[in-house]
Design a protein around this nucleic acid. Structure first.
Length: 487
RNA sequence: GGGCCGCUAGCUCAAUUGGUUAGAGCAACGGACUCUUAAUCCGUAGGUUCGGGGUUCGAUUCCCUGGCGGCUCACCA
């Protein structure tokens, strides 16, 4: 039977209901209890009247009586409908109901012979007629594409995905509370920017008609948050969406959630402390332990996490000590010898970074801080004293993936301007991910920004670990998909 | 964007080397059934096999092309 036929039958039922003056979509129903509160408080509620509302998920009718399960936001509960209790009219009406219909039931709480907590229905009301059949009750909805495109069906049928999004909500809430308790002020800065910056990425472009001006969706809030530090806020954070116009993968969605925080009179060591504290507290809160299973490994978040410099990490996993190699051609030779492909126009630090990505990242399973990155690749970070080529920057890695980025913020306006100019030069050479010049940001720095530490954490990637999924799509309710024409 | 894999009834899945009229369970419809648990039993109906083209006496199956998805590589930091 095609879905149109199935729908037609239900539409006819709908018409019939209207003929009988039954509103299939009444405005309100006041339930007194949720499914879980009934099952959790049976001893108090036994033989008492309750009103519960939910979606019909299972029906076992046997002529003049029947058991069904309804599901509300808290879970499932069994209901028992019987001719003796509801009368002939209502039983007839009940039999016309379909799985997926949303009903409100009023009745007494009892236990069946098999000890299942059940509501003996004395009266019920249809609250919303469902016109389309639900997926199969046993296997549910497993088609991955359908689960993303019709997430509502996924949520109705698959309790585990619903649980994942509850965890996500709790985690985000936890991060906000954690930071607010530490004195950080949550702020909101522009998502539509005329100059974008704060990360290496291509932006989405849009246009404001009244101003007749192109705008970019932000790739990061960084430069605005630092303006706020200039303005005198001591601790700020923003937890919201970023947009990057790049490939989609199990680890990338075009819009994703980022936490960025900035603290005046702090440096990257302070950020490391906050990062460790935040993530460990979060893991403990959500998972109840600092040791958790993720895919096929066990992650141990016990503090302190491993700390190793960028160059030492390359040395450890690739066997080459690039700190001892000065000239670009020699760096290139060493990289190629290590089996890393490099192109002719790459600079020394781009090559070493390539080696890091190829050889090191996949090994960083346990929570690890990689410290002291190349200055050339970190145009917003402050230099490391005593080394002209490195900056005070770290990235936390978990399960082989970069989950954040932090540094002692560059607050020297003259140097910042030079760094931007280097970026602009790279752009002209064809690197479209390089930063554009942001004159106003430099101006802000010229008024003076205190020494500041900043930290960014990829929220979706942290959630992936908490809900043990290999795909970022399982942490985003409506992941981006290619448009599919209906009909 | 490249490579590999997938797409069959509303859902979950079958269909022999290319061979009758594409099957089954659930859902639906009709009937029986007043403590069921994926309720059971009897019966009925339901298909653009992702779209288009080709090869063939014959295509769900083979070829070409397009669509969508998954994994992966690239881009991404």
């Amino acid at each position: 039977m095609s879905d149109l036929d199935l729908r037609k039958i239900r539409v006819e039922k709908l018409e019939q209901l209207k003929k009988e003056n039954i509103d299939p979509y009444p405005n309100i129903y006041k339930a007194t209890h949720e499914a879980k509160t009934v099952t959790d408080n049976f001893s108090d509620l036994e033989n008492k009247k309750v009103k519960v509302a939910g979606r019909l998920m299972l029906m076992r009718m046997q002529g003049k009586a029947g058991f069904c399960h309804i599901k509300d936001s808290t879970g499932m509960i069994q209901i028992y409908v019987r001719l003796d209790f509801v009368g002939e009219e209502k039983l007839k009406l009940f039999k016309t109901l379909d799985m997926g219909d949303i009903i409100g039931v009023e009745g007494e709480v009892f236990k069946t012979r098999t000890e299942e907590i059940t509501i003996k229905v004395l009266d019920f009301q249809l609250l919303s007629k469902s016109l389309l059949p639900l997926p199969e009750k046993w296997h549910g909805l497993s088609d991955i594409e359908a689960r993303y495109r019709q997430r509502y069906l996924d949520l109705i049928m698959n309790d585990d995905i619903k649980e994942s999004f509850k965890i996500r909500s709790r985690a985000v809430q936890f991060m906000r509370n954690f930071l607010q308790e530490k004195g950080f002020l949550e702020v909101e800065t522009p998502m539509m920017q005329s100059v974008y910056g704060g990360a290496y990425a291509e932006p989405f472009m849009t246009h404001h008609n009244a101003l007749d001006m192109d705008l970019y969706l932000r790739i990061a809030p960084e430069l605005y948050l630092k303006r706020l530090i200039v303005g005198g806020f001591g601790k700020v954070f923003e937890l919201n969406r970023n947009f990057r116009n790049e490939g989609i993968s199990t680890r990338h969605n075009p819009e994703f959630t980022m936490l960025e925080l900035y603290q005046a009179y702090a440096d990257y060591n302070d950020m490391m402390e906050i990062c460790e504290d935040l993530i460990c507290s979060l893991v403990k809160e959500v998972k109840g332990s600092l040791k958790i299973d993720y895919q096929d490994v066990t992650l141990d978040f016990k503090r302190p996490w491993k700390r190793i410099t960028f160059l030492d990490a390359v040395k450890e996993y690739c066997g080459v000590d690039f700190s001892k190699i000065e000239k670009t051609p020699d760096v290139k030779k060493a990289a190629e010898k290590a089996g890393v492909k490099v192109s002719a126009k790459m600079t020394k630090w781009e090559i070493i970074n390539e080696v890091f990505e190829e050889k090191v990242e996949e090994n960083l399973i346990q929570p690890t801080f990689i410290l002291d990155y190349p200055k050339e690749l970190s145009p917003l970070a402050k230099g490391k004293p005593g080394n002209s080529e490195l900056v005070e920057r770290f990235e936390p890695y978990i399960a082989g993936r970069e989950v954040g980025n932090a540094f002692s913020e560059l607050n020297d306006p003259v140097e910042q301007k030079l760094r931007f100019e280097e970026q602009v030069k790279k752009r002209k050479e064809g690197n479209m991910e390089a930063h554009p010049m942001d004159h106003d940001f430099v101006t802000a720095l010229e008024y003076g920004m205190p020494p500041t530490g900043g930290l960014g954490i990829g929220v979706d990637r942290i959630i992936m670990i908490l809900v043990n999924t290999a795909s970022i799509r399982d942490t985003i309710l409506f992941p981006q998909l290619r448009r599919k024409d209906d009909k």
